[in-house]
């Protein structure tokens, strides 16, 4: 696993740190890791954007993949520490219909 992605799993909750890694093809690793957590019974997936400056289209696509996987697994997705501009983007694109922000 790449060192840029940090996953912390505590019981049914897992925290994923998106970083800038999210915005490249290699960001698919994040999605895979989330799916793995969901398969292992994770019911609350927290994606942390503290280290993420911007989110581009690839990033959006990968986040949609995470959301879709979580919905199929009946798990909740929470986006945390999202920059104001990114929140605007998420709202505009409708991602906020599917996740909770904190």
């Amino acid at each position: 696993m790449n060192t840029n992605i940090i996953i912390r799993a505590e019981g049914e909750k897992a925290v994923v740190y998106a970083s800038d890694y999210l915005n490249k093809l290699s960001g698919e690793t994040i999605e895979r890791e989330c799916r793995r957590q969901l398969d292992m019974g994770c019911k609350m997936l927290v994606v942390n954007f503290a280290e993420t400056e911007i989110v581009n289209s690839i990033g959006i696509s990968i986040l949609l993949g995470v959301i879709d996987a979580a919905q199929n697994a009946g798990a909740k997705v929470i986006f945390s520490d999202v920059k104001a501009e990114t929140i605007e983007l998420f709202e505009m694109l409708g991602l906020t219909n599917h996740v909770m922000l904190n």
Partner: peptide, 19 residues
């Protein structure tokens, strides 16, 4: 293959298309 995968990400991500 990578080009096509990246392209689909960009297309889905640009308009936030679920699948």
């Amino acid at each position: 293959q990578e080009m096509i995968r990246t392209s689909l990400h960009l297309l889905l991500g640009s308009l936030a298309i679920m699948r």
